[in-house]
Amino acid sequence: MDDATVGPVDLAARVDEALAVQALAFGLTDDEIAVREQIVRRHLQQPGVRSLGATSPSGRLVGFVYGMPNDRGHWWSTIVEPYLRREGGDRWLDDSFVVVELHVLPAYQGRGVGGRLITGLTDPVPQPRTILSALDLDSPARRFYRGLGYADLAHPVHFPSAPIPYTVMGADLPLRRPARTTADDPA
């Protein structure tokens, strides 16, 4: 049963709630949350940033997504560019929309919330493609992204201080609408 409403969210006003969702979904420590709070607040100042939230009937934030037009000067792009270039795919950094974070509480995963969040975020953007990074594991999140049309562009990608490598994935927009299954939404 779908009991989450997806719509615009003032991420700046609800950053603590969003990071609590991310911490539960992704297993973050308090120190990691503090670092990510600064990153999110900095991202929210970027041109073209968009965010959506999923709320329970009581108004509790149970999922969120945000992203922005890519800029090769952003930290993330400077890290992934050599990996993409090695694979012949650094063009993906141009005229693309980056999905920075997408997280859904475990109790709400597998209900289509993640799909509604990411398609609601990317459908209106003017860029012709979207990119993101996901842990370089065979995981429900990676299967979820593949179901939307994302393909692996480069891996393993090593971010400073991240103990697990990532995969950069990209998809043409609009994203595919997969058949409803019990596949998990991303963390």
Rank of each mutant, 00 (worst) to 15 (best):
P47F: 09
T122D: 04
G53R: 00
R142G: 04
V49Q: 11
D138L: 08
P163Q: 03
A162S: 15
S161K: 14
D90W: 05
F64E: 04
P140Y: 04
S51L: 07
R111A: 08
H155L: 14
R60Q: 10
Y66H: 05
T119P: 03
I79A: 13
T130E: 06
G110H: 06
L61K: 08
E81D: 13
R142P: 06
V62K: 10
N70C: 14
L102D: 06
G63A: 02
G114E: 06
V65K: 03
V113R: 09
S58E: 12
G53A: 06
R129F: 06
L132H: 07
V80E: 05
F159G: 14
G67S: 02
V99T: 02
A54L: 01
L61Y: 01
G147M: 07
R142H: 07
L52S: 04
D123G: 15
S56E: 02
G120N: 02
A134W: 06
P165W: 09
R86Y: 08
G114Q: 13
Y150C: 11
S96P: 03
Y83V: 10
R91G: 13
R86T: 09
V113N: 09
T167M: 12
Y66E: 08
P69Y: 05
L137I: 04
L117Q: 07
I164K: 11
R143C: 12
G89W: 07
R86H: 11
A151Q: 13
T119D: 10
I164R: 15
V113P: 08
V98I: 09
V99Y: 08
P124K: 01
F159L: 11
G147C: 05
R146Y: 12
E101G: 04
Q109F: 01
S96M: 04
R50M: 07
L132V: 00
P163N: 12
R129V: 12
S133G: 15
D123N: 15
G88D: 08
D152E: 14
Y150K: 00
P156M: 02
G67V: 04
